[in-house]
Amino acid sequence: MSGPTPSEARGTREKSRHPLAAWRRHHRHCLRGALARLIRRPLGAWATILVLGVVLSLPALVMTLGHQVERLGTIWTSDAARMDLYLAPETDQDERDALRDWLDRQAAVAEQRVISPDTGLEALSERLRMEGLDDLESNPLPWVIELTLSDAKPETRLTLAEGLREQPAVAEFSSGGDWIERLEQIRTFIDELGWWLLMLLGLTVVFVVGNTLRLELHERRREIALIALIGGTERYMLRPLLYDGTLTGLLGGLVASGLVSLAVSVTAGPIERFAASYGTAISPQVDPGLVLLLMAAGALLGWLSAQVIGRFYIGRLSTP
């Protein structure tokens, strides 16, 4: 018994590939149809996209603010690794030397610098641009020791602070780490607020896109009924709607990214001046990851809206 001829085998392979080819062909048709509907009805489609962009831009602006706060915290992290010790006025040279020897033995201290009252008064005079401070009868400034810590961990500052409280020569000490911790708490709050807004306003996106897709389904009700009559599956009827929703959400995310970039560029000047007032140079910018997040969130919300609305209405429209 002879086997199949080459032409018969080739025909068998083509038939086996036929369902997959039809599946790819239908996907291409749905994508082209979604793009054509954007061009054919630009006013209604782009009005929906603009609304999505405005809705998604609000949480994105909050997240961008959190990103700028994080950048400021990164720049100011060096302050968390510093401590200033203000010595008691009655301390003498031996007590200062003993304190410095104790600091040298601390693993948390990487470097120390002593500032005398005269040096501190001169620096203060230059900073305030005031003359005549050198003519004061008595110098009110104390001896100061500036410490550079081995790291910026809160545990390091806490351990050193406990030891400093037992040193009689130290009247008071301050650390820039407290401000960094508060800044980190602010950043965490802003991030959580941004994610909550994204989830809450995401429901708005679902309803807005869903209403647009519902109108699209209403116009295609005869086509859907005909496809159901000849045996078309719900997935087949739903696929064009999924492309419409995903494309609409994706473009809404792009519009939101543009709005956020515009807002950052408009407010860049005040932000730069604010940072400069604290001795920091910062150039506001939009995180590229945020742009990808907006596009992905918009596409996902559009797809989800198409799933919910499509499965609900297609089942009703395809029922005789």
Rank of each mutant, 00 (worst) to 15 (best):
E223M: 13
G202P: 10
H26F: 11
P117Q: 07
Y236L: 11
R127G: 04
D97F: 05
V54A: 07
V170D: 08
S7Y: 11
G315P: 12
I309N: 08
G298P: 11
G253L: 04
L56N: 03
R273L: 04
P117G: 01
I39R: 14
A268D: 02
I49E: 08
V114E: 08
R37D: 06
L183A: 03
A281P: 01
Q106P: 13
L193S: 11
T48A: 06
W196M: 15
N211Y: 13
N139A: 02
D244H: 15
S261E: 00
S174A: 08
T12E: 13
L72M: 09
W46V: 12
A21H: 04
S265Q: 03
W46I: 10
P240N: 10
A161E: 15
E126G: 02
M237V: 12
T233P: 12
Y236K: 08
A281R: 15
Y236E: 00
G176I: 14
A108R: 07
M237Q: 13
A169T: 15
A88G: 05
L124K: 11
S265C: 02
L52F: 00
F312A: 01
Q185V: 02
Q93S: 14
E111D: 11
D97R: 07
L85E: 09
E95F: 02
Y236N: 00
H27C: 05
A22D: 06
Q167K: 15
A296Y: 02
P4G: 04
G279Q: 07
A306E: 14
L238M: 10
L58P: 05
I314M: 08
G3T: 11
I271W: 03
I282M: 05
G194Y: 02
M83T: 14
A225Q: 13
D178A: 05
I115T: 09
R113V: 14
A45D: 09
E181K: 09
S57F: 01
L193D: 00
L87G: 05
Y243M: 03
S305V: 13
D92Y: 10
D104G: 04
L292M: 13
A228F: 01
A263E: 00
R214Y: 04
V264Q: 03
L31M: 04
L61F: 03
L215R: 12
L31S: 03
D104H: 03
R214D: 01
V208Y: 06
Q167T: 13
G44W: 09
G11V: 08
P240E: 05
L99E: 06
E14F: 10
G66A: 12
I186K: 10
M63K: 05
M1K: 14
A268Y: 02
E219T: 09
L300W: 08
R239V: 05
Q93I: 14
L213P: 07
A225C: 00
G132E: 00
R37N: 10
G44I: 05
Q93C: 08
P59T: 09
M295D: 07
E8V: 09
P140T: 03
G3N: 13
P59I: 07
E234R: 14
V69G: 02
T64C: 08
V54I: 15
T233S: 12
